Computed example of a mutant assay.
Amino acid sequence: MLSLGRLRAGGKGVQAFRSGGHIQSRQFFLTSLATLFGPIIFSENNRLADKMESGQLHYKDPNSVFNQGSNEDNRYFKRKEPNYPGHVPLYNFEKLLMILGSSAGAYFHPERNEFIVGLGESTAITPVLRSLQHQMLSDPTGRKILKERPRITSTSLDLDYLRSLPENTIGNSYIKWLDREGVSPDTRVPVKYIDDEELAYVYQRYRECHDFYHAITGLPIIIEGEIAVKVLEFMNIGIPMSGLGALFAPLRLKKSQKERLYNIYYPWAFKSGLNSKPLINVYWENILTKDINEFRKEMGIEKPPDLRNLRKEYFEKLKRAKKI
């Protein structure tokens, strides 16, 4: 006869056998399912992956209405198609908002270039640009500029070559001014908010020639020098932003700065701007070896008093007054 202990042990063995049998049966069942349906599932996944890779699989993006101006589902706001690479077409209300925002930004933070850029392009109205375009088309050099569309960059000008030019040449004066002021021609950003392609280039040309106006006048990029050059530009070229700068920028200046502007540099800028030949028609890249004094004489531009020397004399005078 079997003892009670062996019966109990045998019972546990039977239960373990039965449990193990269930596990084996379940594993066999799952393995069979995987064998039957696995290829179908993986085949479908591979098919979807192939379609996704080839760009054939698409889904409805709920944000596409807002992210794509050309989306047909956007009934309320559709961005116009760009007219040239980099162009950002704006509606009139957007231009108005840009004028207001950039005007406030330029007034309180004139050192921030994005406000100056936004204000310049948003106020560059079509009639003014058309007038400049006509002025260029009426001049042989202006027509050549519009035809060839040169760009003023550190690569196109070869700055090392400019440093090798004689001291009184336009090219050498230009590179010396850049080095002294610590600026580069590459800082002039591309135009993108002006709709007409050729008018956009006209404004781009004006923007990139700005440093040459500084170089031939010797005016630095400190606030007084910038305002004086803006007045010169407005009287000669007529860009609205230059006039706005001349009108409102001095309001934040000190008394001594206003006196220098109103008594010296505004009269100079009015006279030189009105008497000078159109600066927009100067092909600077082709006259870099020209004597700068001869150029001023031919154009009808007088060289203004040295602004840095005037400021230096003023501060020295203040120091002497404090010692007394």
Score class of each variant (00 low, 15 high):
V229S: 04
K192D: 11
K230Q: 13
E226F: 07
P220G: 11
V191D: 03
I239P: 00
A200I: 06
I223D: 06
N263W: 01
I264W: 05
N263Q: 14
A200K: 01
L232H: 05
S256Y: 13
I221A: 06
Y206E: 05
G218P: 01
D195E: 15
Y193H: 14
N236E: 11
I264R: 04
E197Y: 04
S272H: 05
I194R: 00
K271C: 09
E224N: 13
Y201T: 06
S242Y: 02
A200C: 06
V202C: 12
H214R: 07
A269E: 06
C209I: 09
Y206M: 10
E259K: 15
A249H: 11
R205H: 15
G238Y: 01
L199S: 09
I222G: 09
K192E: 10
P267M: 09
V191L: 05
E233N: 09
P250H: 04
R188C: 07
K258V: 12
K258L: 12
V229Q: 08
A269R: 03
N236I: 07
P267H: 10
W268N: 03
E224T: 12
G273H: 02
K254G: 13
L251K: 14
M241E: 02
A249F: 10
K230S: 10
V229C: 05
L199K: 06
G273I: 00
G243I: 02
S272R: 03
R188S: 09
M235K: 11
D196H: 08
P185Q: 13
P267G: 10
I216C: 04
L261T: 02
P190Y: 00
K230N: 10
R205F: 15
N263S: 14
M235D: 04
C209K: 02
M241Y: 10
V189Y: 02
P250A: 08
H214S: 04
Y201D: 10
E198I: 13
Y193M: 11
F212T: 06
Y206G: 01
H214F: 07
Y266E: 11
L219M: 14
I194D: 01
Q204K: 12
R207P: 00
I264P: 01
R260I: 10
S272T: 13
I222Y: 11
K271E: 15
D186P: 05
L261Y: 15
I227L: 15
A200W: 00
I216Y: 01
V231M: 13
E259P: 00
A269C: 11
A228F: 04
N263T: 14
N236L: 09
N263H: 10
K255F: 10
